[in-house]
């Protein structure tokens, strides 16, 4: 009889991560010859984002997708890709992902979880109603923050950190509760940012990653060939995901411009210089709490990107 797994993700069906997951699941189902079926619960219809990891741990679902950097409070090694300006292009992001993987794997293993694959989000940029020529533009704005890193960033540039939950962003912008935020072009298209904001300045900022995980126990209960199949399909999903992310970075930004937003690409040099400084500060702050593992990771990363 066919085994049936459940998988939870918080993202909607149109999101490229979800599209990639569906392709991954189809590959597994087809390859299993009817021995394994996986039901995807998208849209947070089963579990909200913060409950997905524990959902896998407790057996409510066998597989799930998480935003890795959201677990920075649990362990700083999860959130290294959330440090602003540490990576500034996809090549660097790949290098960092490769170096971060063993640390992530080990920590997830301790929690009974198996890392199947990681896929990045496209670069982020500033959404504002005036052109961002330097960090001076952001000073004094009501800057939307959603985690410790963006909160610290807002403090460092002298903006007022403002917590607005995702669903209220459009209205908060339209009424002036916030007047600056940083997120990807993909998210900008998702919320149709052109309805409430004028300028998009893609600066890189972060390329955080989503991770697809499964319960180690559930995985080991499968026949060896099915385990192999899932891992192989995961590897292919990772390849596909990185390509999708790169393609999204381009097409979504084009979409913003096509809808009438002013996209400052490339961004002003002065802005990038100032951002690099802030990135340096925040990397050092992260190192202070990430301990020995963190130091090793950053050293290896810097050595590696100096070579490419």
């Amino acid at each position: 009889q066919a085994r049936r797994w459940q998988m939870a993700t918080a993202y909607p069906d149109g999101n490229f991560h979800t599209v990639n997951i569906r392709a991954f699941l189809k590959e597994v189902e087809d390859g299993s010859g009817g021995r394994l079926a996986i039901t995807l619960h998208s849209n947070a219809s089963l579990l909200r984002m913060p409950e997905i990891k524990r959902g896998v741990q407790t057996g409510q679902v066998q597989m799930g997708e998480i935003l890795l950097s959201a677990y920075g409070n649990e362990d700083p090694m999860f959130e290294v890709d959330g440090i602003p300006m540490l990576v500034t292009n996809f090549t660097q992001a790949r290098v960092l992902a490769g170096l971060q993987r063993p640390y992530v794997q080990r920590r997830l293993e301790r929690q009974g979880l198996t890392l199947l694959y990681m896929v990045p989000w496209p670069q982020s940029g500033f959404y504002t109603n005036v052109p961002v020529t330097s960090l001076e533009t952001l000073r004094g704005t009501r800057f939307r923050t959603f985690n410790a890193a963006t909160q610290r960033f807002a403090q460092l540039v002298g903006a007022t950190p403002t917590t607005v939950q995702v669903p209220e962003v459009p209205q908060a912008f339209a009424t002036g509760v916030v007047n600056a935020m940083v997120t990807s072009a993909a998210t900008g298209v998702d919320v149709q940012a052109w309805d409430f904001v004028k300028h998009f300045t893609p600066v890189g900022f972060t390329r955080t990653k989503n991770a697809v995980i499964c319960s180690t126990r559930a995985l080991q209960q499968l026949p060896a060939d099915l385990q192999r199949l899932i891992r192989d399909a995961g590897e292919r999903a990772e390849q596909r995901g990185w390509e999708l992310a790169q393609e999204q970075e381009r097409t979504r930004q084009e979409e913003l411009a096509r809808r009438g937003m002013i996209v400052a690409d490339p961004p002003p040099e002065r802005l990038m210089r100032e951002l690099a400084q802030i990135g340096e500060t925040m990397t050092n702050e992260w190192l202070a709490k990430a301990g020995e593992d963190g130091r090793k990771l950053i050293e290896a990363y810097r050595a590696a990107i100096a070579r490419v």
Partner: peptide, 15 residues
């Protein structure tokens, strides 16, 4: 008890 054994920490700005 699960939250305790998993060592689960809030994801927001308060850890």
């Amino acid at each position: 008890i699960d939250s305790w054994t998993f060592g689960e920490v809030a994801q927001g700005m308060l850890a």
